[in-house]
Design a protein around this nucleic acid. Structure first.
Lengths: 214, 214
DNA sequence: CCAGATATTATGCATCCGTATAATTTCTGG
DNA sequence: CCAGAAATTATACGGATGCATAATATCTGG
Protein backbone atom coordinates (compact mmCIF):
# COMPACT_ATOMS: atom_id res chain seq x y z
CA UNK A 1 0.00 0.00 0.00
CA UNK A 2 2.87 2.31 -0.73
CA UNK A 3 1.50 5.72 -1.63
CA UNK A 4 2.39 6.48 -5.22
CA UNK A 5 4.45 9.58 -5.69
CA UNK A 6 2.55 12.44 -7.26
CA UNK A 7 3.17 12.88 -10.99
CA UNK A 8 4.10 16.28 -12.34
CA UNK A 9 5.23 18.10 -15.47
CA UNK A 10 8.04 20.59 -15.58
CA UNK A 11 7.05 24.15 -16.27
CA UNK A 12 8.71 27.29 -17.50
CA UNK A 13 10.35 29.01 -14.50
CA UNK A 14 8.71 32.33 -15.37
CA UNK A 15 5.33 30.67 -15.45
CA UNK A 16 5.87 28.92 -12.12
CA UNK A 17 6.93 32.14 -10.48
CA UNK A 18 3.84 33.82 -11.87
CA UNK A 19 1.64 31.03 -10.51
CA UNK A 20 3.15 31.35 -7.06
CA UNK A 21 2.80 35.14 -7.15
CA UNK A 22 -0.83 34.83 -8.24
CA UNK A 23 -1.50 32.38 -5.43
CA UNK A 24 -0.08 34.82 -2.88
CA UNK A 25 -2.22 37.67 -4.22
CA UNK A 26 -5.38 35.55 -4.24
CA UNK A 27 -4.83 34.34 -0.70
CA UNK A 28 -3.93 37.79 0.59
CA UNK A 29 -7.08 39.24 -0.95
CA UNK A 30 -9.28 36.45 0.35
CA UNK A 31 -8.02 35.90 3.86
CA UNK A 32 -5.37 38.46 4.65
CA UNK A 33 -1.84 37.77 5.86
CA UNK A 34 -3.03 35.01 8.17
CA UNK A 35 -4.18 32.96 5.22
CA UNK A 36 -0.90 33.23 3.37
CA UNK A 37 1.00 30.14 4.52
CA UNK A 38 3.47 28.22 2.42
CA UNK A 39 1.17 25.23 2.43
CA UNK A 40 -1.83 27.27 1.28
CA UNK A 41 0.28 28.96 -1.41
CA UNK A 42 1.50 25.62 -2.70
CA UNK A 43 -1.97 24.13 -2.79
CA UNK A 44 -3.41 27.15 -4.59
CA UNK A 45 -0.61 27.08 -7.15
CA UNK A 46 -1.00 23.34 -7.65
CA UNK A 47 2.45 22.36 -6.41
CA UNK A 48 3.97 21.07 -3.19
CA UNK A 49 5.48 23.39 -0.66
CA UNK A 50 9.07 22.39 -1.28
CA UNK A 51 8.91 23.99 -4.72
CA UNK A 52 8.40 27.42 -3.26
CA UNK A 53 11.83 27.32 -1.76
CA UNK A 54 13.25 26.28 -5.10
CA UNK A 55 12.11 29.56 -6.62
CA UNK A 56 12.26 31.90 -3.65
CA UNK A 57 14.77 31.87 -0.81
CA UNK A 58 12.13 32.65 1.81
CA UNK A 59 8.41 33.21 2.01
CA UNK A 60 9.14 36.90 2.55
CA UNK A 61 10.97 37.08 -0.79
CA UNK A 62 7.95 35.59 -2.52
CA UNK A 63 5.63 38.06 -0.88
CA UNK A 64 7.90 40.93 -1.91
CA UNK A 65 7.73 39.68 -5.48
CA UNK A 66 3.94 39.41 -5.30
CA UNK A 67 3.56 42.95 -3.99
CA UNK A 68 5.88 44.35 -6.63
CA UNK A 69 3.98 42.52 -9.38
CA UNK A 70 0.65 43.80 -8.07
CA UNK A 71 1.79 47.41 -7.90
CA UNK A 72 3.32 47.20 -11.37
CA UNK A 73 0.02 45.94 -12.75
CA UNK A 74 -1.91 48.72 -11.03
CA UNK A 75 0.47 51.39 -12.29
CA UNK A 76 0.23 50.03 -15.80
CA UNK A 77 -3.56 49.92 -15.62
CA UNK A 78 -3.63 53.58 -14.56
CA UNK A 79 -1.24 54.51 -17.35
CA UNK A 80 -3.41 52.82 -19.96
CA UNK A 81 -6.67 54.18 -18.56
CA UNK A 82 -6.39 57.69 -19.94
CA UNK A 83 -6.12 56.49 -23.53
CA UNK A 84 -4.09 57.90 -26.45
CA UNK A 85 -1.96 60.96 -25.75
CA UNK A 86 -3.43 62.66 -28.77
CA UNK A 87 -7.00 62.65 -27.41
CA UNK A 88 -8.56 65.78 -25.91
CA UNK A 89 -7.23 66.33 -22.33
CA UNK A 90 -10.71 66.56 -20.86
CA UNK A 91 -11.70 63.19 -22.32
CA UNK A 92 -8.50 61.65 -21.02
CA UNK A 93 -9.15 62.99 -17.53
CA UNK A 94 -12.73 61.69 -17.66
CA UNK A 95 -11.57 58.22 -18.66
CA UNK A 96 -8.86 58.21 -16.01
CA UNK A 97 -11.42 59.04 -13.31
CA UNK A 98 -13.88 56.41 -14.52
CA UNK A 99 -11.20 53.73 -14.72
CA UNK A 100 -9.90 54.60 -11.26
CA UNK A 101 -13.36 54.09 -9.79
CA UNK A 102 -14.32 50.82 -11.46
CA UNK A 103 -12.86 47.30 -11.50
CA UNK A 104 -10.21 46.10 -11.82
CA UNK A 105 -8.60 49.19 -10.26
CA UNK A 106 -11.35 49.80 -7.74
CA UNK A 107 -12.97 46.76 -6.20
CA UNK A 108 -12.96 44.84 -2.96
CA UNK A 109 -9.97 42.81 -4.09
CA UNK A 110 -7.63 45.78 -4.37
CA UNK A 111 -8.84 47.04 -0.99
CA UNK A 112 -8.11 43.68 0.59
CA UNK A 113 -4.70 43.57 -1.00
CA UNK A 114 -3.87 47.03 0.22
CA UNK A 115 -4.92 46.14 3.74
CA UNK A 116 -3.09 42.85 3.63
CA UNK A 117 0.18 44.41 2.58
CA UNK A 118 0.25 47.64 4.57
CA UNK A 119 1.85 46.15 7.66
CA UNK A 120 4.58 44.53 5.64
CA UNK A 121 5.13 47.83 3.85
CA UNK A 122 5.70 49.55 7.16
CA UNK A 123 8.33 47.03 8.18
CA UNK A 124 10.18 46.39 4.94
CA UNK A 125 12.09 49.38 3.46
CA UNK A 126 12.11 47.83 -0.02
CA UNK A 127 8.35 47.41 0.00
CA UNK A 128 7.94 50.92 1.38
CA UNK A 129 9.97 52.30 -1.51
CA UNK A 130 7.83 50.40 -4.02
CA UNK A 131 4.72 51.67 -2.28
CA UNK A 132 5.74 55.33 -2.35
CA UNK A 133 6.95 55.15 -5.92
CA UNK A 134 3.67 53.67 -7.13
CA UNK A 135 1.56 56.12 -5.17
CA UNK A 136 3.44 59.14 -6.44
CA UNK A 137 3.45 57.81 -10.01
CA UNK A 138 -0.33 57.61 -9.87
CA UNK A 139 -0.71 61.10 -8.43
CA UNK A 140 1.81 62.62 -10.82
CA UNK A 141 -0.12 61.17 -13.71
CA UNK A 142 -3.35 62.62 -12.36
CA UNK A 143 -1.65 65.98 -11.87
CA UNK A 144 -0.38 65.97 -15.46
CA UNK A 145 -3.86 65.25 -16.77
CA UNK A 146 -5.32 68.02 -14.65
CA UNK A 147 -2.73 70.56 -15.74
CA UNK A 148 -3.32 69.79 -19.42
CA UNK A 149 -7.08 69.94 -19.09
CA UNK A 150 -6.78 73.32 -17.40
CA UNK A 151 -4.19 74.58 -19.87
CA UNK A 152 -6.59 73.83 -22.69
CA UNK A 153 -8.83 76.52 -21.20
CA UNK A 154 -5.92 78.88 -20.67
CA UNK A 155 -5.74 78.28 -16.94
CA UNK A 156 -2.17 77.81 -15.77
CA UNK A 157 -1.88 76.97 -12.07
CA UNK A 158 1.49 77.31 -10.34
CA UNK A 159 3.34 74.27 -9.08
CA UNK A 160 1.96 74.58 -5.54
CA UNK A 161 -1.61 75.01 -6.72
CA UNK A 162 -1.27 72.11 -9.15
CA UNK A 163 0.00 69.90 -6.33
CA UNK A 164 -2.89 70.90 -4.08
CA UNK A 165 -5.44 70.17 -6.76
CA UNK A 166 -3.89 66.80 -7.53
CA UNK A 167 -3.86 65.82 -3.86
CA UNK A 168 -7.48 66.86 -3.42
CA UNK A 169 -8.67 65.05 -6.56
CA UNK A 170 -6.63 62.01 -5.64
CA UNK A 171 -8.26 62.07 -2.22
CA UNK A 172 -11.68 61.96 -3.87
CA UNK A 173 -10.59 58.96 -5.92
CA UNK A 174 -9.00 57.20 -2.96
CA UNK A 175 -11.95 57.93 -0.72
CA UNK A 176 -14.50 56.63 -3.21
CA UNK A 177 -12.32 53.60 -3.91
CA UNK A 178 -12.32 53.01 -0.21
CA UNK A 179 -16.05 53.45 0.24
CA UNK A 180 -17.02 51.33 -2.74
CA UNK A 181 -14.69 48.59 -1.60
CA UNK A 182 -15.74 48.75 2.01
CA UNK A 183 -19.47 48.85 1.32
CA UNK A 184 -19.88 47.20 -2.09
CA UNK A 185 -23.67 47.04 -1.90
CA UNK A 186 -24.28 50.57 -0.68
CA UNK A 187 -24.05 52.27 -4.06
CA UNK A 188 -26.00 51.99 -7.30
CA UNK A 189 -24.09 51.08 -10.47
CA UNK A 190 -22.43 54.14 -11.89
CA UNK A 191 -23.18 56.17 -8.79
CA UNK A 192 -19.58 56.21 -7.63
CA UNK A 193 -18.26 57.37 -10.99
CA UNK A 194 -20.97 60.04 -11.19
CA UNK A 195 -20.16 61.37 -7.73
CA UNK A 196 -16.44 61.28 -8.37
CA UNK A 197 -16.70 63.08 -11.70
CA UNK A 198 -19.02 65.64 -10.17
CA UNK A 199 -16.83 66.35 -7.16
CA UNK A 200 -13.60 66.55 -9.16
CA UNK A 201 -15.31 68.66 -11.80
CA UNK A 202 -16.39 71.08 -9.09
CA UNK A 203 -12.94 71.19 -7.48
CA UNK A 204 -11.31 71.91 -10.84
CA UNK A 205 -14.18 73.99 -12.25
CA UNK A 206 -14.20 71.76 -15.32
CA UNK A 207 -17.23 70.19 -17.05
CA UNK A 208 -16.46 66.60 -16.13
CA UNK A 209 -19.85 65.29 -15.08
CA UNK A 210 -21.34 62.89 -17.58
CA UNK A 211 -24.85 64.08 -18.26
CA UNK A 212 -26.09 60.61 -19.10
CA UNK A 213 -25.34 59.39 -15.62
CA UNK A 214 -27.16 62.02 -13.62
CA UNK B 1 16.17 26.48 42.77
CA UNK B 2 12.44 26.22 42.47
CA UNK B 3 11.17 29.15 40.42
CA UNK B 4 9.00 31.31 42.60
CA UNK B 5 5.47 31.74 41.35
CA UNK B 6 4.74 35.18 39.99
CA UNK B 7 2.94 37.46 42.44
CA UNK B 8 -0.18 39.30 41.33
CA UNK B 9 -3.02 41.47 42.54
CA UNK B 10 -6.63 40.93 41.69
CA UNK B 11 -8.18 43.55 39.50
CA UNK B 12 -11.63 44.77 38.65
CA UNK B 13 -13.01 42.57 35.85
CA UNK B 14 -13.98 45.63 33.80
CA UNK B 15 -10.48 46.98 34.09
CA UNK B 16 -8.90 43.67 33.12
CA UNK B 17 -11.10 43.38 30.09
CA UNK B 18 -10.17 46.92 29.11
CA UNK B 19 -6.47 46.10 29.49
CA UNK B 20 -6.80 43.06 27.26
CA UNK B 21 -8.78 45.03 24.69
CA UNK B 22 -6.17 47.80 24.71
CA UNK B 23 -3.41 45.25 24.24
CA UNK B 24 -5.17 43.81 21.20
CA UNK B 25 -5.61 47.25 19.65
CA UNK B 26 -2.00 48.22 20.28
CA UNK B 27 -0.68 45.01 18.79
CA UNK B 28 -3.01 45.15 15.80
CA UNK B 29 -1.92 48.71 15.08
CA UNK B 30 1.76 47.93 15.49
CA UNK B 31 2.15 44.61 13.74
CA UNK B 32 -1.15 43.63 12.16
CA UNK B 33 -3.04 40.40 12.71
CA UNK B 34 0.17 38.37 12.63
CA UNK B 35 1.40 40.08 15.77
CA UNK B 36 -1.78 39.44 17.73
CA UNK B 37 -1.03 36.16 19.50
CA UNK B 38 -2.42 35.19 22.88
CA UNK B 39 1.08 35.27 24.32
CA UNK B 40 1.81 38.73 22.95
CA UNK B 41 -1.56 40.01 24.19
CA UNK B 42 -0.90 38.64 27.67
CA UNK B 43 2.57 40.12 27.84
CA UNK B 44 1.33 43.53 26.67
CA UNK B 45 -1.47 43.49 29.21
CA UNK B 46 0.87 42.41 31.99
CA UNK B 47 -0.78 39.07 32.69
CA UNK B 48 -0.23 35.45 31.71
CA UNK B 49 -1.99 33.89 28.80
CA UNK B 50 -4.28 31.67 30.81
CA UNK B 51 -6.10 34.74 32.07
CA UNK B 52 -7.33 35.62 28.62
CA UNK B 53 -9.39 32.49 28.52
CA UNK B 54 -10.82 33.36 31.92
CA UNK B 55 -12.36 36.52 30.48
CA UNK B 56 -12.98 35.54 26.87
CA UNK B 57 -14.02 32.14 25.56
CA UNK B 58 -11.72 32.39 22.55
CA UNK B 59 -9.19 34.74 21.06
CA UNK B 60 -11.75 35.59 18.40
CA UNK B 61 -14.22 36.79 21.06
CA UNK B 62 -11.57 39.08 22.50
CA UNK B 63 -10.79 40.50 19.08
CA UNK B 64 -14.50 41.10 18.45
CA UNK B 65 -14.68 43.02 21.71
CA UNK B 66 -11.61 45.05 20.79
CA UNK B 67 -13.03 45.99 17.41
CA UNK B 68 -16.36 47.00 18.89
CA UNK B 69 -14.63 49.14 21.53
CA UNK B 70 -12.48 50.84 18.91
CA UNK B 71 -15.41 51.68 16.65
CA UNK B 72 -17.42 53.00 19.59
CA UNK B 73 -14.56 55.30 20.53
CA UNK B 74 -14.23 56.55 16.95
CA UNK B 75 -17.94 57.21 16.65
CA UNK B 76 -17.94 59.10 19.94
CA UNK B 77 -14.91 61.15 18.87
CA UNK B 78 -16.70 62.14 15.67
CA UNK B 79 -19.82 63.06 17.62
CA UNK B 80 -17.86 65.31 19.96
CA UNK B 81 -15.78 66.88 17.21
CA UNK B 82 -18.37 69.30 15.88
CA UNK B 83 -18.85 70.98 19.26
CA UNK B 84 -21.99 72.42 20.83
CA UNK B 85 -25.21 72.12 18.87
CA UNK B 86 -25.87 75.80 19.42
CA UNK B 87 -22.76 76.96 17.56
CA UNK B 88 -22.98 78.33 14.01
CA UNK B 89 -23.36 75.43 11.53
CA UNK B 90 -20.43 76.56 9.43
CA UNK B 91 -18.11 76.54 12.45
CA UNK B 92 -19.32 73.10 13.42
CA UNK B 93 -18.66 71.77 9.93
CA UNK B 94 -15.19 73.33 9.94
CA UNK B 95 -14.35 71.72 13.26
CA UNK B 96 -15.70 68.36 12.15
CA UNK B 97 -13.50 68.43 9.06
CA UNK B 98 -10.41 69.47 11.01
CA UNK B 99 -10.98 66.80 13.64
CA UNK B 100 -11.54 64.13 11.00
CA UNK B 101 -8.21 64.91 9.40
CA UNK B 102 -6.01 65.10 12.50
CA UNK B 103 -5.10 62.69 15.30
CA UNK B 104 -6.54 60.81 17.03
CA UNK B 105 -9.15 60.23 14.30
CA UNK B 106 -6.73 60.42 11.40
CA UNK B 107 -3.30 58.96 11.93
CA UNK B 108 -1.31 55.90 11.01
CA UNK B 109 -2.72 54.02 13.99
CA UNK B 110 -6.32 54.18 12.79
CA UNK B 111 -5.20 53.13 9.31
CA UNK B 112 -3.34 50.17 10.72
CA UNK B 113 -6.32 49.18 12.82
CA UNK B 114 -8.64 49.39 9.88
CA UNK B 115 -6.30 47.29 7.76
CA UNK B 116 -5.79 44.80 10.54
CA UNK B 117 -9.50 44.27 11.07
CA UNK B 118 -10.88 44.41 7.54
CA UNK B 119 -10.40 40.73 6.80
CA UNK B 120 -12.11 39.71 9.99
CA UNK B 121 -14.95 42.09 9.16
CA UNK B 122 -15.46 40.33 5.85
CA UNK B 123 -15.74 36.96 7.53
CA UNK B 124 -17.73 37.76 10.67
CA UNK B 125 -21.32 39.02 10.13
CA UNK B 126 -21.43 40.63 13.58
CA UNK B 127 -18.28 42.61 12.88
CA UNK B 128 -19.59 43.54 9.46
CA UNK B 129 -22.75 44.94 11.03
CA UNK B 130 -20.71 46.99 13.51
CA UNK B 131 -18.59 48.25 10.65
CA UNK B 132 -21.50 49.38 8.48
CA UNK B 133 -23.32 50.96 11.38
CA UNK B 134 -20.29 53.03 12.37
CA UNK B 135 -19.56 54.06 8.82
CA UNK B 136 -23.10 55.21 8.14
CA UNK B 137 -23.31 56.99 11.49
CA UNK B 138 -20.27 59.02 10.54
CA UNK B 139 -21.61 59.88 7.12
CA UNK B 140 -25.08 60.71 8.41
CA UNK B 141 -23.54 63.10 10.87
CA UNK B 142 -21.52 64.76 8.13
CA UNK B 143 -24.64 64.99 5.98
CA UNK B 144 -26.59 66.66 8.80
CA UNK B 145 -23.83 69.23 9.30
CA UNK B 146 -23.73 69.94 5.57
CA UNK B 147 -27.50 70.35 5.31
CA UNK B 148 -27.59 72.79 8.21
CA UNK B 149 -24.68 74.83 6.90
CA UNK B 150 -26.41 75.09 3.53
CA UNK B 151 -29.78 75.85 5.09
CA UNK B 152 -28.24 78.79 6.92
CA UNK B 153 -27.69 80.32 3.49
CA UNK B 154 -31.15 79.38 2.29
CA UNK B 155 -29.95 76.49 0.18
CA UNK B 156 -32.14 73.42 0.60
CA UNK B 157 -30.87 70.39 -1.34
CA UNK B 158 -33.20 67.44 -1.88
CA UNK B 159 -32.53 64.10 -0.22
CA UNK B 160 -30.71 62.69 -3.25
CA UNK B 161 -28.54 65.75 -3.64
CA UNK B 162 -27.76 65.83 0.09
CA UNK B 163 -26.71 62.19 -0.07
CA UNK B 164 -24.48 62.82 -3.06
CA UNK B 165 -22.82 65.76 -1.38
CA UNK B 166 -22.25 63.80 1.81
CA UNK B 167 -20.71 60.89 -0.05
CA UNK B 168 -18.42 63.18 -2.01
CA UNK B 169 -17.30 65.13 1.08
CA UNK B 170 -16.88 61.92 3.00
CA UNK B 171 -14.74 60.60 0.16
CA UNK B 172 -12.47 63.62 0.49
CA UNK B 173 -12.12 62.96 4.21
CA UNK B 174 -11.54 59.24 3.75
CA UNK B 175 -9.12 59.78 0.92
CA UNK B 176 -7.03 62.29 2.85
CA UNK B 177 -7.17 60.05 5.93
CA UNK B 178 -5.81 57.35 3.70
CA UNK B 179 -3.07 59.40 2.15
CA UNK B 180 -1.92 60.97 5.38
CA UNK B 181 -1.84 57.59 7.07
CA UNK B 182 -0.14 55.81 4.22
CA UNK B 183 2.49 58.48 3.62
CA UNK B 184 2.84 60.26 6.96
CA UNK B 185 5.90 62.25 5.93
CA UNK B 186 4.67 63.40 2.55
CA UNK B 187 2.62 66.34 3.82
CA UNK B 188 3.44 69.51 5.71
CA UNK B 189 1.66 70.12 9.05
CA UNK B 190 -1.77 71.54 8.43
CA UNK B 191 -1.54 70.87 4.72
CA UNK B 192 -4.04 68.01 4.84
CA UNK B 193 -6.61 70.07 6.74
CA UNK B 194 -6.12 73.01 4.38
CA UNK B 195 -6.59 70.84 1.30
CA UNK B 196 -9.58 69.07 2.80
CA UNK B 197 -11.32 72.28 3.83
CA UNK B 198 -10.59 73.80 0.45
CA UNK B 199 -11.90 70.85 -1.53
CA UNK B 200 -15.03 70.41 0.57
CA UNK B 201 -15.66 74.15 0.55
CA UNK B 202 -15.50 74.09 -3.25
CA UNK B 203 -17.79 71.06 -3.53
CA UNK B 204 -20.37 72.70 -1.25
CA UNK B 205 -19.74 76.27 -2.41
CA UNK B 206 -19.25 77.31 1.20
CA UNK B 207 -16.44 79.48 2.66
CA UNK B 208 -14.72 76.74 4.64
CA UNK B 209 -11.07 77.38 3.88
CA UNK B 210 -9.20 78.80 6.83
CA UNK B 211 -7.33 81.85 5.55
CA UNK B 212 -4.62 81.52 8.16
CA UNK B 213 -3.56 78.17 6.78
CA UNK B 214 -3.16 79.05 3.17
C1' DC C 1 -8.55 35.54 61.28
C1' DC C 2 -9.98 31.93 58.70
C1' DA C 3 -12.37 29.41 55.13
C1' DG C 4 -14.47 29.45 50.86
C1' DA C 5 -14.61 31.58 46.25
C1' DT C 6 -12.30 32.77 42.33
C1' DA C 7 -8.84 35.42 39.94
C1' DT C 8 -4.46 34.33 38.34
C1' DT C 9 -0.46 31.53 37.24
C1' DA C 10 1.79 27.38 35.47
C1' DT C 11 2.09 23.52 32.60
C1' DG C 12 0.88 20.43 28.94
C1' DC C 13 -0.88 19.13 24.28
C1' DA C 14 -2.13 18.76 19.48
C1' DT C 15 -1.62 21.39 15.47
C1' DC C 16 0.33 24.46 12.25
C1' DC C 17 4.15 27.27 10.75
C1' DG C 18 8.60 28.16 7.92
C1' DT C 19 12.65 26.06 6.63
C1' DA C 20 15.98 22.40 5.59
C1' DT C 21 17.32 18.29 3.20
C1' DA C 22 16.92 13.97 0.86
C1' DA C 23 14.68 11.17 -2.67
C1' DT C 24 12.66 10.83 -7.23
C1' DT C 25 10.78 12.07 -11.52
C1' DT C 26 10.97 14.65 -15.78
C1' DC C 27 13.22 16.65 -19.49
C1' DT C 28 17.01 17.66 -22.83
C1' DG C 29 21.44 17.22 -25.59
C1' DG C 30 24.19 14.37 -27.89
C1' DC D 1 17.94 6.19 -26.13
C1' DC D 2 20.47 7.26 -22.43
C1' DA D 3 22.99 9.96 -19.06
C1' DG D 4 23.26 14.05 -16.66
C1' DA D 5 20.89 18.21 -14.99
C1' DA D 6 17.47 20.13 -12.44
C1' DA D 7 12.57 20.62 -11.44
C1' DT D 8 9.52 18.63 -8.29
C1' DT D 9 7.97 15.75 -4.50
C1' DA D 10 8.44 13.85 0.13
C1' DT D 11 9.75 13.93 4.78
C1' DA D 12 11.59 15.76 8.92
C1' DC D 13 12.51 19.24 12.55
C1' DG D 14 12.39 22.96 15.88
C1' DG D 15 9.56 26.48 17.25
C1' DA D 16 5.16 29.03 17.70
C1' DT D 17 0.26 28.99 18.24
C1' DG D 18 -4.51 28.45 20.45
C1' DC D 19 -6.72 25.93 23.78
C1' DA D 20 -7.34 22.92 27.89
C1' DT D 21 -6.49 21.76 32.60
C1' DA D 22 -4.28 21.65 37.03
C1' DA D 23 -2.14 24.20 40.78
C1' DT D 24 -1.94 28.25 43.71
C1' DA D 25 -2.24 32.87 45.39
C1' DT D 26 -5.35 36.67 46.54
C1' DC D 27 -9.37 38.59 48.26
C1' DT D 28 -13.81 38.83 50.91
C1' DG D 29 -17.62 37.73 54.23
C1' DG D 30 -18.55 36.18 58.45
Amino acid sequence: MAETRRTFTRDDPESRRADLVAAVLDLTAEAGPQGVTVRAIAERAGVTQGLIRHYFATKEALIDAAYTAHMAAQTEAARAAAGPEADPPLDRLRRFIAASLTPPVSDSRTISLWAGFIHLIRRDPAMLATHERSYLAFRDQLQALIVRALAERDRLPGADEARRLAIACNAVLDGLWFEAGALPDAFAPGEIVAIGSGAIGTILALPLANEKER
